[in-house]
């Protein structure tokens, strides 16, 4: 009993320390976002003059009402498309043996080793050739490509960990491959799918270089990352707006996580089944 109590005390201390380390920068961000005088920089621990002015400005004149909608669309499509493509591909590399399998896996890794800055020019030309400049679709396709290698590698591990016996049992019950995929494989790789979709969501949500170059002048299609950049000026930085915009950018990711994290817990149940 006392050992248990000590264990939970240690745990509580660890949680507090972790929360402090994790949230301190976020606290800083929030406190500037609510500070009417943050514009002049020189942050203090608490707002010098509490106000919602910065948020009001960012959401109206800053254009974040439109940017949020665009980003949400881009992120949602990117998450769904990359999850589907990555899952299919990961089943192929985890469950089948075929020629060039190993080199294919390495190739998928190699494409994401190149620094993004170096890809800006060729990718811009490529997207132009596809006729997708200035469109959200062009951006979505690029983000799917950027999050695919990670997704495939990640899910490959999860698919491989699903015991083959479960699949065989499904076949014995007369299920087709597609049926087995839906009712056996899919639920079991859900936690992995959640981790990859969080990753692709954040990629699509925060990416800046390609959003800026590929969307060009189509300001009605701008995403939140471009919106944030507009407050960094040549001669002056609008700290209050920057921090308010950052807060607005951070919140949806949190909401997305809270929504999908139930799936993570559902993995517990799945884990109990497979033992």
């Amino acid at each position: 009993m006392s050992r248990n109590a000590r264990a939970s005390a240690v745990k509580a201390v660890l949680v507090v320390l972790l929360l402090a380390f994790t949230l301190f920068p976020a606290f800083w961000m929030l406190s500037s976002a609510f500070d009417a005088r943050a514009g002049s920089g020189g942050q203090t621990l608490l707002p010098r003059e509490f106000s919602l002015e910065n948020f009001g400005y960012v959401l109206t004149e800053g254009g974040f009402d439109v940017f949020l909608r665009n980003s949400a669309m881009v992120a949602l499509v990117t998450v769904l498309a990359s999850a589907v493509l990555a899952l299919l591909a990961s089943v192929a590399v985890a469950r089948f043996r075929f020629r060039f399998r190993t080199s294919m896996l390495l190739m998928i890794l190699v494409v994401q080793m190149v620094p993004l800055e170096a890809l800006v020019i060729p990718l811009f030309v490529q997207v132009r050739d596809l006729g997708l400049l200035n469109t959200l679709l062009g951006l979505m396709v690029v983000y799917v490509a950027l999050s695919l290698p990670f997704g495939i590698w990640m899910l490959r591990g999860f698919v491989a960990a699903v015991p083959i016996e479960l699949e065989e049992a499904a076949y014995l019950d007369g299920a087709t491959w597609g049926r087995m995929f839906r009712s056996v494989l899919l639920p079991l790789v859900m936690p992995g799918l959640v981790a990859t979709s969080v990753f692709s969501f954040i990629t699509a949500w925060n990416e800046f270089i390609f959003a800026m170059t590929l969307l060009g002048g189509a300001s009605e299609n701008y995403t939140v990352a471009i919106g944030l950049k507009q407050f960094f000026g040549e001669h002056t930085n609008e700290w209050g707006y920057i921090m308010a915009a950052s807060t607005i950018i951070t919140i949806p990711v949190m909401i997305f996580f809270v929504v999908v994290q139930r799936r993570l817990s559902a993995g517990l149940v799945a884990g109990a089944v497979k033992g």
């Binding site: 929360l19 949230l23 976020a26 925060n206 990352a225 944030l228 950052s246 951070t250 949190m254 993570l264």
Partner: peptide, 18 residues
Amino acid sequence: RTVVGSAIMIAWAMPAVT
């Protein structure tokens, strides 16, 4: 778990610039 998960998500989701 949800509390800690959400907290670390904030750290991840905060734009790198900020």
